[in-house]
Nucleic acid binder design. Structure first.
Length: 187
DNA sequence: CCTGTGATCAGCT
DNA sequence: GCTGATCACAGGC
């Protein structure tokens, strides 16, 4: 069984962490799977929620690394980030897609009957399938209901520009597991 | 395959 | 008032 990640494991900068988290296993109350797509965001990055400094919404991004930043996207979806780097910096990794491994029937119920391929293929879908709620904002990732297990082996990771942003649209801070069928979009 | 639109809200101008 | 770190569904080619 892979090593469970602790707060000190999240002290890298955002692109480095986003790359390292490909292949890691994320479970929320035992439901989840293998992370296959991430994006990096940083205070110095115009596309980041943290770019203009702390607000009520993004305060968790400025908290200690190894915690969750949960935000409401387009007024509808809950999306999950892992806070990284150091307290006060405002860096994070958006979890964009997961290969479902555990609790697939629970995820199907939460999302409505669907192809397994679409259960966690996008940040809003990940939030719904894993039961992410705003109460998890700022919550430690090494405590219940979260479990994050380190990626193991040398995985082939592909890189490209981030999705759905207009500022810094050319920065290649999107990472994916090469050849995965569970990505939100092809690279 | 593609493009358009509604849902719904925090933050910014 | 407008813009998003989105998604599902409708319609056209």
């Amino acid at each position: 069984m892979p090593r469970r990640l602790r707060p000190a494991d999240f002290e890298g900068d955002a692109p480095e962490m986003a790359r390292a988290l490909i292949g890691a296993v994320l479970l929320v109350d035992g439901v989840g799977g293998r992370i296959v797509e991430t994006e990096a965001y940083d205070r110095e990055d115009p596309a980041s929620h943290s770019h203009s400094g702390p607000t009520q919404r993004n305060q968790a991004m400025f908290g200690p690394p190894g915690r969750a930043y949960v935000y409401r996207s387009y007024g509808i979806h809950w999306c999950l980030n892992f806070v990284c780097r150091e307290e006060g910096h405002g860096a994070g990794v958006l979890i964009r897609a997961i290969e479902p491994l555990q609790g697939i029937e629970v995820m199907r119920e939460r999302r409505g009957l669907q192809d397994v391929r679409l259960l966690c293929a996008g940040p809003g879908r990940v939030g719904q399938a894993l039961g992410i709620v705003h109460a998890f904002n700022g919550h430690r990732l090494d405590r219940k209901p979260f479990e994050v297990h380190a990626s193991e082996g040398n995985l082939d990771v592909v890189v490209g520009p981030r999705i759905g942003i207009s500022k810094a649209a050319d920065v290649p801070w999107r990472f994916g597991l090469a050849g995965s069928r569970f990505l939100s979009r092809r690279f």
